[in-house]
């Protein structure tokens, strides 16, 4: 589904990604772990199409298409979703209307009829249960006045409604208490099926107690240094990242 080859990316003229390779197949959950400043968030933002990230080399293929050639909205229509590390507050833009416009843009792109108000509302009601979203948050402006945990939950709620094929979660688990973490995990596990893939960018092993990844990758210095299964995450939790970095530089 997602094939990243030799990706080199500059931000403000500074090299952040240095030849990153990653293959993600449908039906898989991948966890990207790594120390601060290793390029995790850069990877997430490049995949979603944020401005200011200059791809100097390499390629990203998504469902056989050149992902980097698409605008952010085209990527979203094709089924790419980014759960933001810092969801932005947008005063004056209603949360639920944003979702309705989003889902209908995606449906239109797929050649499906738009959802009417009733269909949309029943979908929203159903998905709200998945993330235990409070109803009053729904009709507020996007993320305005939400607590940190509510913002993260809203990201997962949006993901649940938009049902992306490839979801990238950028440190969605950071700053969440254990109950909120379970809700996020529940949202992710609910979404997963053999046609979808999820990339979890995370600092901690904690989230992986609830979402079992197929692959765990260590990102450092803008490259994937080591890949493994869930055991790798546990080892990282115990031993930190230094041994991986040393191992890689020795090789």
């Amino acid at each position: 589904m997602l094939s990243i080859k030799n990706l080199h990316v500059k931000v403000d003229n500074k090299k952040i990604l240095n030849g990153l390779d990653l293959e993600v197949n449908a039906g898989e959950v991948h966890a990207i772990m790594g120390p601060n400043g290793s390029g995790k968030s850069t990877l997430a933002n490049v995949l979603a199409g944020r401005d200011g990230y200059e791809v100097v080399d390499g390629s990203v293929e998504y469902k056989g298409k050149d992902l980097l050639a698409l605008s952010p909205e085209e990527r979203a229509c094709e089924g790419v979703f980014l759960a933001f590390q810092y969801p932005v507050e947008i005063p004056g833009v209603n949360n639920v209307y944003l979702l309705k416009a989003g889902i209908n843009a995606i449906r239109k792109h797929r050649g499906q009829p738009e959802l009417d108000a009733v269909e949309f509302l029943s979908l929203v009601k159903e998905k709200m249960k998945v993330v235990h979203m409070k109803e009053d948050l729904l009709n507020r402006a996007v993320n305005e006045g939400f607590s940190g945990g509510e913002k993260k939950r809203n990201e997962i709620f949006q993901m649940a409604v938009l049902e992306p094929a490839l979801a990238i979660l950028d440190e969605t688990d950071s700053g969440l208490d254990i109950d909120a973490l379970k809700i996020v995990a529940n949202g992710v596990n609910n979404l997963m099926n053999e046609d979808r893939a999820i990339v979890l960018v995370t600092h901690y092993q904690r989230l992986l107690d609830y979402i079992v990844p197929h692959r765990v990758h260590v990102l450092s210095g803008g490259r994937i240094l080591k890949s493994g299964d869930k055991q790798l995450a546990l080892e990282l939790e115990k031993r930190g990242y230094d041994w991986v970095i040393e191992e890689a530089s020795a090789a």
């Binding site: 909205e73 979203a76 933001f84 947008i90 004056g92 833009v93 416009a101 989003g102 996007v142």
Partner: peptide, 21 residues
Amino acid sequence: FYLRSRAIDEEIARSLLTFAF
């Protein structure tokens, strides 16, 4: 970027933010 990442067309996103202002 947030709006566009939710499948909102760039022009519409601009109009929307302007309207909200």
